[in-house]
């Protein structure tokens, strides 16, 4: 029960933080971190596939409600949710040796967690920016946007991971 409560709390916090704070960051006129994807990254392993997709849909849809261009976050997040099981299998070949209920820096180790989040964040951001412009003619600009934003998102992901990590330490 407490695990579900934690997931819901995580959802609310990340969405609110995204909408009220991160959407207002105008860094370098190019990049915007989308930390809410961390919610998809950190969903429990045991989640069935269909629920993972539905949750991804709801998450993207909620972020879309707060922007004028509907659907782009929904499409990108569902895509990320769809690829998540495959990427997890790729970075964690031996599922049995996994500690913890959900992917985190603490449980997976720095290298594995970074590989996992770099792949998913870049895929999510790239599809997001591609859908926003909806054409291939500015592909290099789109890639630059993806790169800068992914970097910002990843930095924020690592910071939040360490904050959670230290919180767990003090808990025990």
């Amino acid at each position: 029960m407490s695990q579900y409560l934690k997931v819901i709390l995580q959802f609310l916090l990340l969405v609110l933080f995204q909408v009220l704070v991160l959407n207002n960051i105008r860094f370098a006129g190019y990049a915007n971190p989308y930390l809410y994807i961390l919610f998809i990254l950190m969903l429990p392993y045991e989640l069935p596939g269909w629920l993972l997709l539905i949750i991804s849909f709801i998450t993207g849809f909620t972020i879309d409600l707060f922007s004028a261009q509907q659907g782009i976050h929904t499409a990108a997040t569902v895509f990320a949710g769809f690829l998540r099981p495959g990427i997890l299998k790729l970075v964690l070949p031996k599922q049995d040796s996994v500690s913890g209920n959900y992917p985190s820096l603490q449980a997976m180790g720095v290298q594995t967690f970074l590989t996992y989040s770099v792949i998913l964040v870049i895929i999510h951001h790239f599809s997001l920016y591609l859908l926003e412009i909806f054409r291939f003619s500015e592909i290099f600009r789109t890639m630059l946007r993806t790169g800068l934003s992914s970097l910002l998102t990843l930095i924020l992901i690592i910071i939040t991971q360490y904050l959670f990590y230290f919180k767990h330490q003090s808990d025990s």
């Binding site: 596939g49 659907g71 929904t74 769809f82």
Partner: peptide, 13 residues
Amino acid sequence: LFLVLELIAFTMI
């Protein structure tokens, strides 16, 4: 399910 959800999203876009 992935296809259906993406279809909804693209309709929105």
